[in-house]
């Protein structure tokens, strides 16, 4: 209870939102995040090896959210995603690849999994990525932009290869019609965008729309902001208030060594 004061203190101006990424391998999950995170801050920043999660602020007119974005780190491949991954997630981006019909089916099963495992109030967005591959891009843009590369960070699933445009006309690559995905998203109550991590199309929008839909008041009043790092971010009934931050309080102990 020593931490009760700074835990409940309102010094934290922005709200922490844990956002999890889901989707089949090679649909560009990491790329979408790298676009979102680096675009606003440092365009050419190299992806970090072994980033456990990335954080990025998102400013709306009346509020600032701080996204804590969790990548699957490949643990989804053999259905080995830990329950911890979903815990306290207030938002999810489920990514599929517009050039691979099967990836939408996989996305649908991830949505089901989220509805089963995650917080019932989670805001889910569906992102049809790699839309640059199916839209005729301005010539100037394509001349220097390589095909969309999965950033080479350690969370990228090994061996993922990006789809290449090949020599066909762009539209012929599309396997998921936009209205089909839109219809599914509407029916399932998801936000929906087609995105391109390569050109940036739709990426910021998807995070902004999620931010608008997040019930911030609810988060502030009824759940913890982020997986325990801030202690009890808010009361969850009478029980909250006894949480501790392991990293913080240790400094006080003069003699932590007991060997």
């Amino acid at each position: 209870m020593a931490d009760a004061n700074d835990a409940s203190g309102s010094a934290d101006k922005h709200v922490q939102v844990k956002l999890v990424l889901l989707g089949e391998a090679a649909v560009g999950k990491s790329s979408v995040v790298m676009r979102f995170v680096n675009n606003e801050f440092q365009a050419n920043k190299e992806p970090t090896i072994g980033a456990a999660f990335l954080t990025q602020k998102c400013r709306l007119e009346d509020r600032v959210l701080r996204y804590e974005i969790w990548d699957t780190a490949g643990q989804e491949r053999f259905h080995s995603l830990a329950p911890m991954y979903y815990r306290n997630a207030q938002a999810a981006v489920v990514v599929y690849d517009v050039t691979k019909a099967a990836s939408l089916e996989k996305a649908k099963s991830w949505v089901k999994e989220l509805q089963r495992q995650a917080n019932p109030n989670i805001v889910i967005a569906l992102a049809g990525n790699k839309v640059d591959l199916v839209t005729p891009a301005p010539a100037a843009e394509t001349s220097f932009a390589e095909s969309e590369d999965e950033p080479d960070d350690a969370t990228a699933t090994p061996g993922e290869i990006s789809a290449s445009a090949g020599s066909h006309g762009p539209e012929s690559l599309r396997q998921v019609p936009k209205d089909e995905a839109q219809a599914y998203a509407t029916e399932a109550g998801l936000l929906f965008f087609e995105t391109s991590a390569k050109t940036g199309e739709g990426v910021v929008e998807i995070f902004t729309e999620i931010a608008k839909k997040i019930p911030i008041e609810y988060i502030l009043s009824s759940t913890r902001g982020a997986a325990g790092r801030n202690g009890a971010g808010g009361a969850r009934g009478t029980a909250a208030g006894g949480d501790v931050n392991l990293d913080g309080a240790g400094k006080k102990a003069g003699d932590a060594c007991n060997c």
Partner: peptide, 18 residues
Amino acid sequence: QGFCRVTAVRGGTYILGR
């Protein structure tokens, strides 16, 4: 699970339930 996530983030491969 937290330690396993560290492993995964560092490129470890996870296969459960087999």
